[in-house]
Simulated assay, not measured.
Amino acid sequence: MIHAFVLTLLLVATPAWVTPPRLQEVETVLGPKLYRDGDVIEITEVLSTSPQLEQGDTVVVKGRVRLDSKVNATLSLLLTQTKGDGFEETEVSQTKSVSQGLQDFELKILIKHQGALHLTLYDTTTGKSFGGTYFGTAVQMANIAGWNLRYYLDD
């Protein structure tokens, strides 16, 4: 009798154990940003498994990108590590090829280190970054408020 009760309890509770955390809309703050003339990235929605946007969270960012300064680029959702070795594997879900004009995007990242999230445009030929924006919680953005992104404009 007790065994049947325990088995029933396990069968009922098991879905809660295997169900991944749900994505929910979270409020974010923009941090340092810099673009070439005509380029811009607009974040319209951020979904995350927690509002802290921290190590272990899955984050989905939706928005629009306008590319004017180049014919093609790669838009990437990445993390600049504030603690760690600086090395990061990039998943397919973190990048999107974009072409001149306005288009929507949806990118996804699993945060594997402590750091600051950013959306950045990269030259498809050289791989060099040429514009982007940091975003995160108010505390995260206060911690990086002084970061200089002038290198985005270097040729």
Rank of each mutant, 00 (worst) to 15 (best):
residue 147 W to N: 10
residue 91 E to H: 09
residue 83 K to E: 15
residue 78 L to C: 04
residue 97 S to W: 14
residue 148 N to M: 04
residue 148 N to P: 04
residue 38 G to N: 09
residue 71 V to M: 11
residue 6 V to M: 14
residue 8 T to S: 06
residue 107 L to Q: 02
residue 104 D to Y: 08
residue 8 T to E: 08
residue 16 A to Y: 05
residue 25 E to V: 08
residue 102 L to M: 09
residue 120 T to W: 07
residue 102 L to P: 00
residue 135 F to H: 05
residue 15 P to R: 10
residue 64 R to E: 03
residue 148 N to G: 03
residue 55 Q to I: 10
residue 97 S to H: 10
residue 38 G to Y: 14
residue 14 T to S: 05
residue 20 P to Y: 11
residue 108 K to P: 01
residue 46 V to E: 04
residue 143 N to P: 02
residue 77 L to Q: 03
residue 71 V to R: 11
residue 139 V to R: 05
residue 107 L to D: 01
residue 138 A to Y: 07
residue 112 K to C: 02
residue 122 Y to K: 13
residue 36 R to W: 03
residue 17 W to R: 14
residue 94 Q to Y: 13
residue 115 G to W: 06
residue 147 W to I: 05
residue 98 V to S: 06
residue 103 Q to M: 12
residue 134 Y to C: 03
residue 108 K to S: 14
residue 121 L to N: 11
residue 146 G to L: 15
residue 57 D to R: 11
residue 95 T to K: 05
residue 11 L to G: 07
residue 25 E to I: 06
residue 80 T to V: 06
residue 99 S to I: 13
residue 134 Y to W: 03
residue 97 S to V: 08
residue 54 E to C: 09
residue 140 Q to I: 05
residue 76 S to E: 14
residue 116 A to S: 15
residue 151 Y to F: 04
residue 21 P to R: 08
residue 56 G to C: 09
residue 28 T to N: 00
residue 9 L to T: 06
residue 121 L to Y: 10
residue 112 K to D: 11
residue 97 S to N: 14
residue 113 H to F: 13
residue 48 S to L: 12
residue 97 S to L: 10
residue 18 V to M: 09
